[in-house]
Every structure is written in C-alpha cells, then in structure tokens.
Amino acid sequence: MTSRVMLISPAISAALREARFDDGCPLDATGSARARSAAGAVPAAERTFVSPTVRCRETASALGLDGVVAAGPAGFDVGRWRGRTLAEVGADEPDGVTAWLSDPAAAPHGGESLRELCARVAHWMDEIAALSGRTVAVVEPEIVRAMTVRALAAPESAFWRIDVPPLTVTEFSGRAGRWNLGLGRALGRTGDDPR
C-alpha cells in the first residue's frame, strides 16, 4: 500500500515577514490573495489535515480545503518566545538561542525541543503511512522540515538547513516505513502533472 502526502506551507503573514515566532497572526492581504488565487490547484485527496495555527487554517480556507484540525502537525511550541522576533530573543537570551540552534535536545524557551518536535512529527508520519491514498495537509514550515529530516533519515541538525517558502508544496510517497521526497513543485503542479 502506497501512501501519498502533500504538505502545503501557509501563505505569508506579518509574523513571517518580521521573522517573529508565530503568535496567532492571521495572513496578510498578500498572503490571502495568493492563497485564493491557488484555490482549485490542490488535487483531490482521501483526507485533509490542517495545523491548528491561524495562518494554516486561513490558508486552507482560502484554498477551498475543508480540513480536519490535527495536533500531530501543530507548529513548534516555542514557549515564552512566542510572538517575539528572533532578533529580540537573540538580544535578550543569546546563550538560549545558541543552545536551541545547536543542541536538538535544548528547549531554553520552555516549550518543545527540536528532538521532541521531530519525534512528534515522526509519530504523525507513521499514522499517515498506515493510510492508503492521498493526504493533503496545510502545515507550518517546521513540520515540513521535520518530515523531510525523517524521510531522508538525516540528522536533526539538518532541520535548520531546509528553507520552506510560503505557499509551496512538498510531497512524500512511501510504504513500509520508506518515504520518497518530491521537491520543487509550485502549488498546482503535482506528481500527477507531467509539466
């Protein structure tokens, strides 16, 4: 049985533009317009999931997707850093930022460590792998990164080397615990599209 997973990153928001840890910020006008313009480009799926964040839910809605809000692909819990910019946190807690970026087990913000995030996403991937057909999920970029790290059996440190632009598609297909990764597709161009 082959499982296909299409992850869609959310459209742009003010938090993303400001390099701010997400604080429930909605999509901005540009992000909403771009997501609406891509409506209808997502292929049919047996199931659709949405990360609980505001920008993921708004992106899914703008794309015309009626997804189930799921905890497995929830965004990174950054504890007390939520709503602050990376520059602010770096100025106030430089050792904390250094630890967070260099030690996968560190959680200086009081939230989730990178290792915990990757384990949570790996568990979610295992659940999805048991499902046949296509799954579409609108998820935060860090979920795409964690899933990519898992699919490639890469070290957790590779997480920080993966860029996930807004409103892009990353696809996974696999069976029996082995995933293949499809990269570089704009929303609306899937593996089923030969262009």
Rank of each mutant, 00 (worst) to 15 (best):
A35L: 07
R36H: 12
S37N: 13
S37V: 10
S37C: 12
S37P: 09
S37W: 09
A38H: 09
A39N: 02
A39T: 00
A39D: 02
A39L: 01
G40H: 08
G40K: 03
G40E: 01
A41Q: 12
A41R: 15
A41M: 12
V42P: 00
V42W: 00
P43V: 00
P43N: 01
A44I: 04
A44P: 06
A44V: 04
A45Q: 03
E46V: 06
E46A: 13
E46W: 08
R47G: 10
R47I: 13
F49A: 01
F49C: 03
V50Q: 01
V50D: 02
S51C: 11
S51G: 11
P52R: 00
P52G: 06
T53I: 11
T53Y: 12
T53H: 07
R55C: 09
R55K: 13
C56A: 10
R57Y: 05
E58V: 10
E58F: 10
E58H: 04
T59N: 04
T59K: 00
A60H: 04
A60M: 05
A60F: 02
S61M: 15
S61E: 15
A62W: 05
A62D: 14
A62R: 07
A62V: 10
A62M: 03
A62G: 04
L63A: 03
L63M: 08
L63G: 02
L63P: 02
G64N: 09
L65V: 02
L65C: 05
D66P: 09
D66H: 13
D66R: 12
V68K: 05
V68I: 15
V69G: 05
V69S: 09
V69A: 08
A70H: 15
A71T: 13
G72W: 04
G72F: 02
G72K: 01
P73F: 01
G75R: 10
F76W: 15
F76H: 12
F76C: 07
F76N: 09
D77C: 00
D77Q: 04
V78E: 08
G79D: 08
G79R: 05
G79C: 03
R80M: 11
R80P: 01
R80S: 12
R80H: 14
R80Y: 09
W81H: 12
R82Q: 15
R82G: 05
G83C: 06
L86I: 15
L86D: 04
L86T: 09
A87H: 08
A87Y: 05
E88Y: 01
E88G: 00
E88D: 06
V89F: 07
V89K: 06
G90K: 07
A91P: 10
A91T: 13
D92I: 11
E93Y: 04
E93R: 03
P94R: 15
P94T: 11
P94N: 11
P94E: 10
D95R: 13
D95C: 06
D95L: 13
D95N: 11
G96W: 09
G96D: 07
G96M: 07
V97G: 06
V97Y: 11
T98F: 11
T98H: 13
T98E: 15
T98R: 14
A99R: 12
W100V: 02
L101F: 14
L101H: 13
L101E: 14
L101V: 14
L101Y: 12
L101T: 15
S102F: 08
S102L: 12
D103H: 03
D103G: 01
D103R: 12
D103Y: 07
D103V: 10
D103A: 10
A106D: 01
A106E: 02
A106H: 03
A106Q: 03
A106C: 00
A107H: 04
P108Y: 11
H109Q: 12
